[in-house]
C-alpha cells in the first residue's frame, strides 16, 4: 500500500539516517583515513583524495565527519532516551494519578519549560562536568518537559475513552489498564516527538560542542568540527559548510520522519 511512509521523500530521509547510522557503527567501511592524525598539508580544498578537504592540521575532514557521527548520534540518542524515559514516566504519573501529584509534576515541568534550553543544558553541564555523555544528559534534561507534557495530554484523552472504562469494568487493575490500553494508544505522537527531539538534540549537542562543553579534542564531533574551522571561514569556507551540511541533512531527515509519523498516526 502506498502511504506517506513509502513516498520518495520519506525514502530519502531513511537513506540519510541509515547512512549516518552506518557511519557511526562501521566508520572503517567508508574511509581509509585516520581521524586523529593528519598526513597531508593543512587546509586543502576538496579534491578526489580529500572529499571535504583537510583541516588546520592536515587531517582529512571527510574522515573526521564520518568518525564524528558515532559521538554525535550516540549523544543525541542518549539525550532522547533521557528525555523519553523521564518525561514519559512523569507524564504518565501526572495523567493517571491526577490531583496533587499532577499539580506538582506539571508545575516543575512549567519551570523547566520556562528556562531557555541552552541555558538549562549549560547549567546541568556545569553541575556534571564536561564530556560527551554529560553533554548528552544535559541536552536530554531540556527535553523532559516536552515529553512530559505531550504524554500527559495523550494519557488524559485515552483515559477518558470508553474502552478504558470497559477494561476497568471487566476487572482489570490500574497497572494492567495502563500497560494494555493507555500506553499503546498514547505513544504514536510520542514517537514523532522522539524523531523531532533526536534532530534537535543533534543540533544542541553541536552547539555545546561548538562552545567547547562537549567532547574534548582531538576526538571528532560534528559541533567541534565546525568550531575548529570557524577561524578559516574566510579562506577555507568548505571546512565549516560541509560538516554543517551533513548536520542539516540528518536533522532534516529526522524532522521529516517525525512529520510523517504525526501525519499518518498508526505505526
Amino acid at each position: 500500500m502506498k502511504t506517506a511512509y513509502t513516498k520518495p521523500t520519506a525514502l530519502l530521509a531513511y537513506l540519510i539516517l541509515a547512512t549516518a547510522i552506518l557511519w557511526s557503527l562501521a566508520p572503517g567501511l567508508f574511509t581509509q583515513g585516520d581521524p586523529i592524525i593528519g598526513d597531508d598539508r593543512a587546509l586543502l580544498a576538496p579534491s578526489a583524495t580529500h572529499w571535504f578537504g583537510t583541516d588546520s592540521v592536515g587531517r582529512d575532514l571527510y574522515t573526521r565527519v564520518i568518525y564524528g557521527a558515532r559521538n554525535s548520534l550516540l549523544g543525541a540518542l542518549v539525550a532522547v532516551l533521557v528525555g523519553l524515559i523521564i518525561g514519559t514516566s512523569l507524564g504518565v504519573i501526572a495523567g493517571t494519578l491526577r490531583g496533587k501529584a499532577e499539580t506538582i509534576i506539571m508545575r516543575i515541568v512549567d519551570v523547566l519549560l520556562s528556562i531557555p534550553s541552552l541555558l538549562l543544558s549549560l547549567a546541568v553541564l556545569i553541575l556534571l562536568g564536561f564530556g560527551t555523555m554529560n553533554a548528552a544528559i544535559a541536552v536530554g534534561v531540556t527535553s523532559i518537559a516536552m515529553f512530559a507534557r505531550l504524554v500527559r495530554s495523550q494519557v488524559l484523552s485515552v483515559v477518558s475513552s470508553d474502552y478504558v472504562e470497559a477494561a476497568y469494568g471487566v476487572g482489570s487493575t490500574r497497572t494492567a489498564v495502563l500497560i494494555r490500553h493507555v500506553l499503546p494508544n498514547s505513544l504514536t505522537p510520542v514517537l514523532a516527538l522522539v524523531a523531532l527531539q533526536f534532530a534537535s538534540a543533534l543540533l544542541q549537542l553541536a552547539t555545546l560542542g561548538f562552545l567547547g562543553y562537549g567532547t574534548p579534542p582531538p576526538t571528532p564531533e560534528w559541533g567541534l568540527l565546525i568550531a575548529d574551522s570557524r577561524a578559516y571561514l574566510a579562506t577555507s569556507w568548505w571546512l565549516t559548510l560541509l560538516p554543517g551540511a551533513v548536520i542539516v541533512a540528518v536533522v532534516l531527515a529526522a524532522n521529516h520522519i517525525s512529520h510523517i509519523i504525526n501525519q499518518e498516526g498508526q505505526v
Binding site: A166, H181, N185
Partner: peptide, 18 residues
C-alpha cells in the same frame, strides 16, 4: 465488576483499537 457488566453505546470507542 464480575457480577455487573456494561455494554456501551458506541462500538467504535469501546474497543481498544490496538
Amino acid at each position: 465488576r464480575q457480577k455487573v457488566q456494561m455494554v456501551y453505546q458506541n462500538p467504535y470507542s469501546s474497543l481498544n483499537p490496538r
